[in-house]
Design a protein around this nucleic acid. Sequence first.
DNA 1: ATAGGGCTTCCCATCATGGGAAGGTCAAGA
DNA 2: TCTTGACCTTCCCATGATGGGAAGCCCTAT
Lengths: 152, 152
Amino acid sequence: MSQLHTIGEAAADSGVSAKMIRHYEKIGLIGAAERTEAGYRLYGPAEIHTLRFIRRARNLGFSVDDIVELLGLWHDEKRASKDVREVAAGHLGALRAKAAEILSMIDALEHLIAGCTNDDRPDCPILKDLSNDANPALAKEVGHKFGYQRVC
Amino acid sequence: MSQLHTIGEAAADSGVSAKMIRHYEKIGLIGAAERTEAGYRLYGPAEIHTLRFIRRARNLGFSVDDIVELLGLWHDEKRASKDVREVAAGHLGALRAKAAEILSMIDALEHLIAGCTNDDRPDCPILKDLSNDANPALAKEVGHKFGYQRVC
DNA sequence: ATAGGGCTTCCCATCATGGGAAGGTCAAGA
DNA sequence: TCTTGACCTTCCCATGATGGGAAGCCCTAT
C-alpha cells in the first residue's frame, strides 16, 4: 500500500496533470487504474514510470498516437530498434517540416517589419504587402484553384 | 452585377475556402455578405480583396484575433505604422518562441536517433532515454511542481 | 461536527479547419 | 419541359491536447 499514490501525487511525481492522466485513461493510452473502495484512482511505481515516459515523449513533441506505438515497443521485449527509430524518424520529419514553415514565416515577417517606419505616419509596408494583390505574402501554392473563370 | 461572385468563386479567387469564408462571417471577422433572392452570398471586388488580405495574414501565421486588429488598422486612414508594427512584432516573438521549442525538440531527437542501431536488436537508446528517470528527455521546467512529498 | 482540500464525473472551451447530411437553386442538355 | 449535376444553404460533428468549472462525495485535522 505504501507505494500506491492518489492521482494528485502521481501527477506531481510524473509531471502529467491529473486532468491529463484521466484523459489518457479514457482514450486508452494507459490502462484503467486500480481504485480504492471510495473510487479513488491508485497508482504504483510502474504506472508512474509509464506516466513519466509519456511526459518525456510529449516533451519531444510525439503525438498520443505515436506514444501508443512507443509504449507498445517499450513493453515488447522482442522489439527491433529500427521500429522505434522509424517512429522517431517520422516524427522528426514532421518537426522539421513544421520548423521550416515557421522559419519561413519568421523570415518574411522580419523583412516586413524591417521596412516599417515605426512612427505615427500611416504609411506601412506590412499592410501594403498584405493588401498587395501582386505580391502575395508567403504565398502557399496551396488551394489556388484558378481554373474557374468568373461567371458574372 | 458582373463583378459579384458566389462564394465558390470568391473562394477560388481568394484562396480562402468557402467553408472558412462562412466561418469568418459567423465570427465577425468579415461583415455579412449580400445575398441573392435565393439566399446565395455575393462578393464584390472589395470583399475578395479583404479575403486575400486575410489569407496572406494567415499564411504568415497571424491568428484571427491579430487579423481583426490588422484589418481595423488597414481600414483606418489615421493609423500609425508603429501600431501595425506592434502587432507584427508580437506575432514574430511568438513565432520565434515556437521555432526555438521545435528546434530544441529536433536537436534532442536527432541525438537519440543517431544513437540507434537501426537493426533487429531490441536494444534502443531512444526508449532507454524515454524511460530513464535520471535523464528526462528535454525536460521542460514547466509544470513540475515537486514541492509535494509523497504521502504514502 | 465542521471545514477544507482532494477526489469523482460530466460538460464546455480553446483554435482553425474540414466532413457530411438534408435540402433548396440554377443552368445546360435530351 | 424534365432531368441531371453542380452549386448553394444551414446545422451538427470532429480534430488534438489541454484546461476550467460545477456538483457532489470522501477523508482528515481541528
